[in-house]
Amino acid sequence: MLKEVFSRVSQGYRTADYPRKPPTLPARFRGRPRISTGSCPAGCEQCTDSCPTGAIVSHEGSCRIDLGACLFCGTCADVCPDKRVQFTQEYRMAASHREDLVEHAGNAHQLASALNATAQRLFGRSLRLRQVSAGGCNACEADINVLGTLAFDLGRFGIEMVASPRHADGLMVTGPVPTNMALALKKTWDATPAPKLVIAVGACAISGGPFAAGPGAPEGVGSMLPVDVFIPGCPPHPYTILDGLLRMLGRIEDGFRKP
């Protein structure tokens, strides 16, 4: 027993001071890409040719990036001769609508809005989620799991992952939803009592990611269930996920914390 007490003291208090303070992110972190204004050289398609998922496309003489398909690999930024694409440290990227995930030069970011008053009253202080991995590669799953560790301590926000859809207020779905998981996802959804939410986490769940070109052309959870929040990334950083959840619940607004 003494050993445990000693270890506890020695390992210290490690829960991050988020959302009171902004999170610490690695210097090489690739968050929301920024596309500078101006036009691309005629005929230059280096970024579109090298994108693994076709997330970046030519658009009105410039380009635009669908964050719902982007793997944040940074290749487009590397190959752009004019360095017009840059990945920033901005980790806040969750959106309420699929079209809000399209990034272009000079666009105003529309982050996820809070649920309506009724939903906030129901879920705002206690949200139970059932996670369903539907073809997820275990990276999104791992970074959802990590929210439960003492570093993030999801429980302090009143959010908890539960074992049964019957206990859940919503589903947090990862993966492109391949053919073999469609029925299991549908059954899990049907078993969740209404009113219920759907949160799509990661490029695969939002658009099929690199697997959209595969057998059955899976397009993510949106083709099957109504999605309330889209959280982009491959996988999204845990803070991107946490930010999306708290934003959805109306617990944080534009700044770091609701005043």
Partner: peptide, 26 residues
């Protein structure tokens, strides 16, 4: 979890190849 990894790698290499390989097991 079958997503057709080998099918997607067939005919490569393409810009997608490494992205698929990296997500065989994340």
């Amino acid at each position: 979890q079958h997503r057709g990894v080998e099918h997607l790698l067939h005919g490569g290499p393409s810009p997608r190849t490494l992205a698929v390989a990296e997500t065989i097991a994340g």
